[in-house]
Design a binder for these strands. Structure first.
Lengths: 158, 158
DNA sequence: TTGCAAATGAAGCCTTGGCAACACTTCTGT
DNA sequence: ACAGAAGTGTTGCCAAGGCTTCATTTGCAA
């Protein structure tokens, strides 16, 4: 060991990788809330702050704050004392996130991870799965699993 | 849609999964710093705040704060105006993190993710890979790749 | 040895994501 | 119709992880 200073390579490439991870992380919460709100709307026709908070495992002021941020980002809308709804942009994101989540879970299961663990780990991992990686996951799943054995991806909730 | 309230299942299981993801996230930064400090010690014999900051892509006060937290958690030690070093506990964590990182990258590559993308995505994903999933990854790699085709895991940087 | 640049530390500010406590609406049942 | 319960909103607090600015210490070179 004890070599010379890094020659650009590590010193300049590494930071980028952490910056990307941090950027992904800042989107993660947004994505989780958007997906959750989408689920609730699907189930109840609207997403109430209390339900959002309960499902996210946080208190209601925290949920309120998150929703405020979603509104600020143009992903959701709401009126005082009324439910929360997604904008077109928010709904699109929810769709994307949900699909990605399923793919990640499917991949983990295909690799041999127990379903329950796959669900838990996917929750954190999914936010860091880039489009390129997601495509690779999908390709792998198609390769690895005979079509009729695949979980149905098309019908959404199944 | 429009069914009744969730019957315990989602309402109580879901929060747990987000809580776990949040817990993992709170460890992520610590893990990154510990691994980075381990790398620097391996290369230069010590980890200077400036080098840590540069590699992490943050300013030096941010690195200082992170190191403070590491010290508080018993993972690192340092004296004013001197380099940062890892405790046994910190070194063990660094080792674990490094091994996990390699495994995740290897798995992504084995799945078909381009090496460069694998490196980037792994940075964020690795912190959410549980022991169970990690074991599954390792098993998959042994299954999927003939031993002589494996990247050498032993020599560290390679 | 002294002086200056580089490294480190310290303080203060911002944002995010948690929380509890309290205030105010809405809703519901009598 | 109205009182109490449930739901929401608001405020203020904390810690973490960023940043900038400024003070201090080190270390090297003249």
């Amino acid at each position: 060991m004890q070599q010379d200073r890094p020659e650009e390579s590590e010193a300049v490439v590494e930071p980028e990788r952490f910056n990307q991870a941090r950027a992904a992380q800042s989107m993660a919460v947004l994505e989780d809330y958007v997906e959750m709100i989408g689920d609730l709307i699907g189930e109840f026709g609207e997403a109430r702050i209390t339900d959002i908070a309960q499902r996210m495992g946080v208190t209601h002021p925290t949920a309120t704050k998150a929703v405020s941020r979603l509104k600020r980002e143009g992903l959701a809308i709401s009126r005082p004392y009324r439910g929360v709804f997604l904008t077109d942009q928010g709904a699109a994101m929810a769709e994307r996130v949900r699909a990605r989540h399923r793919t990640v879970v499917d991949l983990l299961v295909a690799i041999g991870v127990p379903a329950e663990t796959a669900e838990l780990d996917a929750e954190g991992m999914e936010h860091h799965v880039s489009d390129v990686t997601l495509k690779a996951f999908e390709a792998f799943l198609q390769r690895a699993l005979p079509p009729r054995d695949r979980r149905d991806e098309a019908t959404g909730k199944g």
